[in-house]
Amino acid sequence: MAQTEVAQAPGTLATFGLGSCVGVTAWDPVSKVGGLAHIMLPDSTQARSKDNVAKFADTAMPDLINRLERIGGVRRRLVIKIAGGAKMFDLFNDDRFAIGRRNVEAVKQSLEKLNLRVAAEDTGGNFGRTLFFDLDTGKVIVRTIEHGEKLL
């Protein structure tokens, strides 16, 4: 949670139990480097404590791309996939728990500023997700408890 990892194939990156958080994978099919960011909040400018850049969509996206470029990724080749951003609890009139949707929007906006676009997504709903990101193929498996598995 609130972490970013980058690595080169072969290997798998994973993040477990995403709720309102959003997992973002970025993969360069030529150099076979990939990164996985697990963001928790949309916007660092509203936060009092912003030491952890991986926590916020607006700071985690540039950080993810920079780190990939440092290990041989090329920005224009990156394939981006996102998953998560669920609303786990349906609390009446409580906007605090609509954070999932705002996270998804913020990730897309931050990517747009970097001239990147989302190629595939599995977002929203009211269930948790676990992601496995294969650095050889760029494929992302989304695992859930009651909604089966999905391949992105």
Binding site: S20, Q46, K55, D90, R96, G100
Partner: peptide, 21 residues
């Protein structure tokens, strides 16, 4: 409000609010 799912998924929505500060 009731939910039945992965522990991580249930907790992260709660922590998001704390995480702002």
């Amino acid at each position: 409000a009731f939910a039945h799912d992965m522990a991580g998924a249930l907790i992260d929505a709660v922590l998001a609010e704390v995480g702002l500060v």
